[in-house]
Computed example of a mutant assay.
Amino acid sequence: MVPAMWRTAELRWWWRGERTRPLTEWLLQGAEPLVDRRTDLYLAHAEATDIGIKQRGYGATEVKVLVDLPDLSLPPQMGCQAEIWVKSSGLPLSLTTGTTLPVGKTRFRRLLEFAGGVWHGIDSEEAAEEGVGLEISDVECAGSAWHTVCMEAFGPADRIEPLLQAAITLLGPWPSGTSEPWLCGGYPLWLSRLSSHAAAAE
């Protein structure tokens, strides 16, 4: 079987501790979220910031590679580098515990399709040709609690950047009083920083 491959445009922010209600309400805007809970096994290496490998729920393996850093316009307080990732799933890979970290997560997601010049709520990415996934997640790793916000555009390769920009415009700046994020970047960068800090503490 040939692994599936797709491209996404993403913005992701990280904070230590539990998520706040205003930030959750800003992202979901009253929509009933899609909720899933699972533990993924991630490759964790201090130098692996542009490639991510994980076993989703200890099942199918997914590989993602950072391929571009597009320029998007964000509110100043949300300053973050957008990322273009190429992903592949269904690869026959296995990860060993010596180089990985289990990451528990509870995701609260809102999926939007862009069709006819209008945003519509949907139940799955497979139901739309192009759109954006909005996610806020509770994350636990190595005994520490985190929360992360992600905006991920999907669709034709030439559309994902404008879709992500349109989603930023749709949501507007996050609530006043939101603390400065600890990090902006995908899971590979976050895991790299955690690995670096763990190595420095030894």
Rank of each mutant, 00 (worst) to 15 (best):
A166C: 04
R193V: 09
L111I: 01
W14G: 05
S88A: 07
H197K: 15
C80T: 11
L43E: 04
G177Y: 09
R37M: 14
L112E: 01
L23H: 06
D50H: 13
Q81Y: 03
G116N: 03
E202C: 13
R7P: 03
R193E: 12
A157D: 15
L189I: 08
P162D: 06
T106P: 03
R37D: 15
L66F: 10
A198W: 11
R21H: 13
A167S: 09
P75W: 02
G57A: 07
E140S: 09
G185W: 02
S88I: 03
A198H: 15
G79N: 12
R21N: 08
A115W: 00
E10Q: 04
V86P: 07
D40V: 03
E18T: 12
K105N: 00
G117K: 00
T178A: 08
E152D: 02
K87H: 05
H197L: 13
R193Q: 14
A157Q: 15
L112W: 00
R7E: 10
G98I: 09
P3I: 05
E113Q: 03
G98K: 01
A60G: 13
D138P: 04
C184S: 14
T39E: 07
V149L: 10
E161T: 14
V65S: 10
A198T: 14
V103T: 03
G186L: 06
E25T: 15
W14R: 00
Q55K: 10
E135D: 14
F154C: 02
E140M: 12
V86I: 12
